[in-house]
Amino acid sequence: MLTFTLKRLLALVGTMLGVAILTFFISNIAPGDPARLVAGQNATEDMVETIRVEYGLDKPLLTQLSIYLGNLAQGDLGKSIVSTRDVTQELASRIPATLELVFCAMGLGIIFGVTLGVLSAVWRDSWFDQAVRIFSISGVAIPAFWLGILMQLYFSVHMGWLPVSGRFPLVMAPPESVTGFYLIDSLLEGSLTKFWTSLSYIILPAIVLSLPCLASILRVNRSEMIEVLQSDHIVAARAHGLSQWRVICYYALKNALIPTLAIIGLRFGWMLGSTVLVETVFDWPGLGLYAVSSALSSDFKPVIGVTLVITFFFVLINMIVDLAYAWVDPRLRSAK
C-alpha cells in the first residue's frame, strides 16, 4: 500500500508540473502583443516597453517558461492588475470559502446519490424508481446558474426564508478563523447563532452546486447496482440463503462502488468548475467569483492562479479516489 501511495504522490507532482506548462502555453496563445495586453488600452509606447522588459516578455519562450516555473515553485503567481496585490495572497483568502462550499455540496451529493441509487435499484421500476430517475436526469440537464436564480427568487425573495447572496451578513462578525470554514469555526467558538447563520447562507448554493453531482452519482450507482444484482455471485449468495439487505448493502454495493467512485472523482472536477457559475449567482466570495471578475477585467494572472489551485485540488481528490479503489478492491492491492 505504501509504494502505491508514494507512486500516486509522485504522479501528482508530475501532473501539476504538466498543468503549469499547459497554463503557460494558454497564456501565450493570445493573439497580439502580450506586453500591450498587460499594459492595457491607454498605455504609451514607453510603458509597453517597460512592461515588456519587466515581465521578461522580450526573452525567448523557453526562458520565459523556466522563469515562470521557477516563480511557481516559490509560490509567486504574479500580481493582479486590478488590485495590484499578490495573486497568491488573494487566492489564500478565498480558498476556504470555495472549499467549504464544495465539501458541503460533495457531502450532499454522495450521501443522497448513493442512498437513492441503491434504493432505486432495489425497488426497480416502482413509482419511486421512476420519480428518482426523472429527478436524476433533470438534475444533470438543469443549468446551475438558472436553478440558482430560481431558488433565490423563491426561497429568498418570495418566501424570505433564506438570504439572497453572500457568505455572511455584513453586520455580524464572522467566526474566529481556525480552519477558515465558517460552519466548523462557529461551532469551535461555541456560537450557535453564527452556526445557523452560516448554514442559512451556505445551504442554497450548496444544494445548487450539488445537484448535477448528485444526479450523476445516483444514475451510475443505480445502473451499477442493477448490473451487479444480476451477476452470478449475487445469484449464488441468494441461493445460499443470505438475507436481502446483507446481500445488497455489503456484497452488491461493494462491487458497485468501484465505478461509482470513479464518477465521484470526475464529478468533483465538474463541481469545482461549476463554482465559477454558482459563486457568481450567489456572490460567494470564493475562487470562482475571483476568476470570473478577473477574466472580465482582462486581469489574467488571477485566472491562471485559480486554474492552478483548482486543478491541484482536483488531482488530489483523484489520488484519494485511487487509494480508495485499492482499499475496496483487494485485487488492486496485490497487483501494485
Binding site: S231, H233, A236, N255
Partner: peptide, 11 residues
C-alpha cells in the same frame, strides 16, 4: 464457473 460465482471483493 466458480470464479464468477464467488464475490471477488469479499474474503
Amino acid at each position: 464457473d466458480p470464479m464468477t460465482y464467488l464475490n471477488p471483493l469479499v474474503a
